[in-house]
Design a protein around this nucleic acid. Sequence first.
DNA 1: TATAAATCAGACCAAAACATCCGGTATATG
DNA 2: CATATACCGGATGTTTTGGTCTGATTTATA
Lengths: 143, 143
Amino acid sequence: MTVIFSKKCEYGLQAVLYLAAQISREVIPAEVIANKLSIPKEFVSKILQSLTENGIVISQKGKSGGFAIAKDPKKIKLIDIVAAIDGLSMFNNCVMGFPNCNPENPCPLHDKWGELRSKAYSMLTDENLDNFREKTLRKISNL
Amino acid sequence: MTVIFSKKCEYGLQAVLYLAAQISREVIPAEVIANKLSIPKEFVSKILQSLTENGIVISQKGKSGGFAIAKDPKKIKLIDIVAAIDGLSMFNNCVMGFPNCNPENPCPLHDKWGELRSKAYSMLTDENLDNFREKTLRKISNL
DNA sequence: TATAAATCAGACCAAAACATCCGGTATATG
DNA sequence: CATATACCGGATGTTTTGGTCTGATTTATA
Ligand code: FES
Ligand code: FES
């Protein structure tokens, strides 16, 4: 049922978006995040743990611990999260699975797909997480 | 490693494209198709079997049997194969996995993604398999 | 008519994706 | 200092996807 990203990546995007939309930078426990987003708590916890290694989120252990965004949301883009979780191979491979996707050896969809994937790439790089605050809150609020 | 379609769907697209590119309508055994495309023989065989049920390919059993395109390639579009194998849910769901993807309840990427997915849909519907013959043969020849 | 070569159905196996659990450790707070 | 609560690492379990195998049946052709 996933569209183009793995579930791990989808949840990661949602969770980071949620953290970046907070006004305060106080840490939020995985359980709260999971409840707000209606996604599995243990799973999102693991995903956020892995994202601490990429410097996207920070964690605080112990009582009243949790996760928070690691730096100014203006400095984070969606592509950073995708790169950290799913990697960027989808932006290099043939949409029909043929090997060796490049302009010298195009499949019938190569040109059209090339345009689309570069627009998809732009979609993930043009704006930073700060630009998404309002829309994120609105989406999550009536979830 | 898959981009947007499952492996099953990727192989299905490749195989049908290959069959549609043939000049003659004589059946070709799964093994030959698999060798040409360098994909697993048993797997592509299963996939083509399932596509016979959708009227996209026909099969002939017994000695010198195999698979062939079922109707005029002008009448088949890539979307038909995608619909038969992966279904069309990717054209209705949120790119970030949020529930309830619609204009009244958009996530931060909804508008941009909406445009992209409708272009992706066009990519699969605008042209028919006859339009792809040459390019398919060229791609497969230097595989 | 015998045989070889193919699809077909369904069981089976393997790997990856998705998800949970547990025991350890850190730490805020009383 | 004790305790409750949270991350963390790693093992484990479950489900889906990817892929193979076997035996039955079909059928062109020698
Ligand atoms: S070869 Fe198919 S998209 Fe590039
Ligand atoms: S709600 Fe996210 S793409 Fe529509």
